[in-house]
């Protein structure tokens, strides 16, 4: 079985972002970028499936500017076999990404597609579900455990009240939650080997996808700042402040 993994290049999760002064977006020049943390978990899960003999080949896909090659190389160094870069300098929204992934799914015929549950930049949490809809496949979102057996997948999902297990027919779309696994670090020899693995480059137009954004961002602004309050000396003073000043207890 072939596994397709979608990975996104985003601002590193540790970076404190800055909103541009003209309110057109967030400053990305000279900012540390890395693979979306949920996507690292997706790659790791695919590699574990291959190591367990359940997957034959792993294809890592990323979409965006040429620099997304680095993100694909990271996936290759973790154990993916080859990469596909859908290259464009235009903004890509989840629906456009899902449409491009649909074309790739039709071409590559994967048995399973694994994506992160959300990207930590747009926080949309949409792409996997949209791809499942477009393919007419089952979806198992927010997965914290995946068990493959005879053409089906048993997936444990993180839901608001706790956990839920569902059975989905393969091929299916799975999106990863944080607790699915602990991604490995790529070793230096594997990073060197990854340089020799093939990456195919296509454009949204090659795939016949209209990638025009459906949502227009009118402005991006900073949220209201919270001011630091006061430090209290002890528990008694804290209780007094909460009772008499803030009046919340």
């Amino acid at each position: 079985m072939k596994v397709l993994v979608a990975v996104k290049r985003v601002i590193d999760y540790n970076v404190k972002i800055r909103v541009k002064s003209d309110q057109t977006g967030v400053e990305t020049a000279n900012v540390k970028m890395s693979m979306n943390p949920f996507d690292e978990i997706a790659v790791e899960e695919a590699v574990r499936l291959k190591e367990a003999g359940k997957a034959a080949e792993i294809v890592a896909v990323s979409m965006g500017p040429a620099t997304c090659q680095e993100t694909i190389r990271t996936a290759l160094a973790m154990g993916a076999d080859r990469g596909i870069l859908v290259q464009t300098d235009d903004e890509l929204q989840p629906l456009a990404v899902a449409k491009a992934l649909k074309v790739l799914c039709e071409k590559e015929q994967p048995g399973l597609v694994i994506l992160g549950k959300q990207a930590i930049d747009d926080d949309a949490n949409q792409t996997g579900q949209m791809l499942a809809a477009l393919m007419g496949w089952a979806q198992a979102t927010f997965a914290s455990k995946i068990v493959l057996e005879d053409g089906q997948a048993l997936v444990t999902r993180e839901i608001d009240g706790g956990l839920e297990t569902i059975k989905v027919k393969l091929p299916a779309i799975v999106t990863t939650d944080l607790r699915l696994n602990e991604p490995r670090y790529a070793s230096l020899p594997n990073i060197m080997k990854a340089k020799k693995k093939p990456i195919e480059t296509v454009t949204p137009a090659d795939l016949g996808v209209d990638a025009a954004p459906r949502l227009v961002t009118l402005k991006v602004s900073e949220p209201a700042k919270r001011q630091a309050g006061v430090k209290v000396a002890d528990v008694a003073q804290l209780v007094d402040k909460l009772k008499n000043e803030a009046k919340v207890i």
Partner: peptide, 21 residues
């Protein structure tokens, strides 16, 4: 919620519209 986030993007794609999260 986890239910809304699970279902609405699937609906949006079937309608060929963006979803606003």
């Amino acid at each position: 919620t986890t239910t809304g986030k699970n279902v609405l993007p699937r609906l949006a794609a079937l309608l060929d519209v963006a979803q606003i999260s």
